[in-house]
């Protein structure tokens, strides 16, 4: 330790300690979970499993109910993202381009899901969904997931659209492009990074949403996070870890694929009006 301290110099030494603390705090728990998921024998007080294997993977993957939740969650997230894009992008564009009465009010309304207690909204939602026969349906859960991340889907693309100059759109119109063609060929490609980030928020938000799916989706729609609640309570940590790691995989893949769009600046846009 002493040799390390003098070898690296005080500043470097402190920086390495900081790095170690950072990695241990943020990545230690995740790494521990991945290790546990491949455990063979893991008895108290073993620090790490004494043998490894796919025992618990087999166990989880042999339960058809759990495999079903994986598919439900993935399909749900895709549907939620697509529908959300479809209904939110026009709104985002209108808010970015046009001045109309009530614009701030509309824009602010998307903040509501973050200010009103979620559990309160879901309970009240359940009352209305009962009347509309949406309880326990796929559509009902899709709606819940959409409103949860609508703020990102409206605010981030809206900010992105604002950076596209009107003149660029107008010149395309002048040479005869239809409004839709202008949108898909000029505006959308330029606003693309913002749209990607917003879609990521929506997709991953849908993958992790548990409370709403529990209240609105049960008993017919089981998603991975809502299933995980039960698993945490009643399964050993090795089995739970397998399921949690599976839930982690889509996030990791998406983040790696789209890493060039993810900067602190791009991600913060959705939180400011």
């Amino acid at each position: 330790m002493k040799r390390l301290y003098y070898g690296l110099g005080k500043k470097k030494f402190l920086e390495w300690i900081f790095f170690a603390v950072f990695v241990l705090f943020f990545y230690g728990p995740l790494m521990n979970m991945v290790v546990l998921s491949f455990a063979g024998d893991y008895e108290y007080p073993d620090v790490v499993p004494t043998s490894y294997g796919f025992k618990w993977w087999d166990y989880i993957l042999s339960k058809s109910q759990m495999v079903d939740t994986i598919f439900t969650s993935l399909v749900l997230a895709v549907v939620v993202t697509l529908v959300s894009l479809l209904i939110c992008l026009p709104a985002a564009y209108a808010i970015a381009r046009y001045k109309f009465r009530g614009r701030s009010l509309v824009r602010l309304s998307f903040l509501l899901t973050n200010a009103f207690p979620k559990m309160g909204i879901y309970t009240a939602m359940a009352v209305i969904f009962y009347k509309l026969n949406l309880m326990g349906t796929f559509v009902g859960v899709v709606l819940v997931h959409i409103v949860n991340t609508m703020m990102f889907m409206v605010w981030i693309p809206s900010g992105a659209f604002r950076t596209v100059h009107v003149q660029q759109e107008e010149s395309a119109r002048d040479v005869g492009a239809s409004p839709l063609r202008v949108f898909f060929r000029i505006t959308m490609p330029m606003a693309w990074p913002g749209i990607v980030v917003a879609s990521l928020y929506t997709f991953l938000g849908s993958m992790e949403e548990a409370q709403g799916s529990l209240l609105i989706g049960l008993p017919n729609v089981h998603t991975m996070p809502s299933e995980l609640y039960g698993i945490i309570m009643s399964f050993p940590e090795t089995a739970g870890s397998v399921f949690a790691v599976i839930l982690l995989i889509p996030s990791l893949i998406l983040l790696i694929v789209f890493r060039k769009y993810l900067s602190a600046e791009a991600l913060s846009n959705g939180l400011k009006m």
Partner: peptide, 10 residues
Amino acid sequence: FIPGIVAVYA
């Protein structure tokens, strides 16, 4: 971007 419940469990 880690699902909340996964991280809590970890």
